[in-house]
Design a protein around this nucleic acid. Sequence first.
DNA 1: GCAACCTTGTAAGGTGCCTTGACTAGAAGG
DNA 2: CCTTCTAGTCAAGGCACCTTACAAGGTTGC
Lengths: 163, 163
Amino acid sequence: MSPGSKTPPAGIPLPGLLDVVSGALFAEFRSELEQSQFGDIRPTHGCVFRHVRGDGLRLTDIAERANMTKQSIGEIVDDLVAKGYVQRIPDPNDRRAKLVCLTERGEGAQGYGLSLFAKVEKRWAERYGADRISGLRELLEEIAAAEAPFAVPELAPREPAAA
Amino acid sequence: MSPGSKTPPAGIPLPGLLDVVSGALFAEFRSELEQSQFGDIRPTHGCVFRHVRGDGLRLTDIAERANMTKQSIGEIVDDLVAKGYVQRIPDPNDRRAKLVCLTERGEGAQGYGLSLFAKVEKRWAERYGADRISGLRELLEEIAAAEAPFAVPELAPREPAAA
DNA sequence: GCAACCTTGTAAGGTGCCTTGACTAGAAGG
DNA sequence: CCTTCTAGTCAAGGCACCTTACAAGGTTGC
């Protein structure tokens, strides 16, 4: 029960720092998004906009990438359908499945959101140093691809096989 | 309504990357914590352990630092009291207030948690480069101190006044 | 073709965490 | 004393997510 063998002074734990920084960044994004024509998009909806591309994606695949259950994603998709951002299209290859696709408005929102993220990142690059922010992105992408490839299949240039 | 003037290809938005990495890191922490003698500590309890120091902290102050309401913190503190990690001590300077203090067990848990975070961070330093991880920490601390000083008063070496 | 089994998506109910609103006890200032 | 402000609690509600259970459609072997 002694207070640890060494208790190395690591400062504030890294996950806490990451959360605080992510929260600040995301708040900047949200405050601009809410004043746009896409103000009815809530933070939860991000898991769909993040992963759905032009050719559509099945519910199960969204759930896997978002690390959530199919039911939760289904609920969120319902909401987005009601708001006119996505639609369910029958999968031509599997009559059970439906492809979640962005509507025209949905594509507009996704594009706007991405440009907004880029804008905020650029602002931070000017604030904290472009090379530092790009270095941060580089490191984070490498870590994300290694630690959670299912969550960011856009990255993950590594093939699983080849012993 | 055109899809953005430039739509610069920024890759995956930074907040998403930060969340994925933070999640992976935190999962590593949790899986070790759950197997320890402090397995009944849940993720939500972190907001208390993060901020309470030896001399105690009032509920209102915890809420401000955690960016949460007094009610939520109160509920979490209730739970931690029931589990024997903290106790409420009357504030000698204000009979309305109570100082939330760690019990002996609470201090043990906090110390163990901190050492666990340090351990995981060290592991990642070996995995991704010690200089890169320490550079990451440095940048995050700078950003956190600038963007959300209320959340990390341990940092924030800047005085607010002095025009 | 059909029987056993897997997968896709949905429905219903529950839990955890957090919020808004209303209140008591004590502090601060006239 | 009387007003006003602050510290903390109580109660009700909501949102996000999960677990359990199930119908419809594919898949494989015979």
